[in-house]
């Protein structure tokens, strides 16, 4: 199954990056959302894939005896999902605020911090 997952991850990454290369904030946001999933799947796949057996130790046993899915990437991804959601929400609000203040959703028109006609810094002491 790793083969199929690898291809899937490639598709996710390509789509996310294509969206992020756009100038428009909404498409960039959508790209970021997909990028989060792409990274999670990447982690999931690199921990190898097993079907249907969650990494839970059966009652009455002290250690895992059966072959189960790999718990380590799952632990990493679980927190990553929540964090990427917070990040996504932050970007969403940021773009929303940028739109309200600047009246555009085109990243190229947002030149407040880096104005187009930026004069050279003064030389001297």
């Amino acid at each position: 199954m790793e083969v199929l997952f690898s291809l899937l991850v490639g598709v996710f990454f390509a789509a996310a990056i294509y969206l992020m290369l756009s100038k428009f904030l909404v498409r960039i946001l959508l790209g970021v959302a997909i990028l989060g999933n792409a990274v999670n799947l990447l982690l999931f796949t690199s921990g190898r894939i097993l079907r249907e057996v969650p990494p839970v130790i059966p009652a009455g046993l002290d250690r895992q005896v059966a072959v189960t899915a790999n718990p380590l990437p799952q632990a990493l991804i679980l927190t990553a999902i929540v964090i990427s959601f917070s990040f996504f929400a932050f970007l969403l609000v940021l773009s929303y605020r940028a739109f309200q203040d600047l009246g555009t959703d085109n990243a190229n028109d947002m030149r407040v911090a880096e104005p187009v006609a930026d004069s050279a810094p003064p030389t001297g002491y």
Partner: peptide, 13 residues
Amino acid sequence: VVVGAITSIALAL
């Protein structure tokens, strides 16, 4: 933390 932070984000929006 998750309840508080995410609820506050959702409510704000």
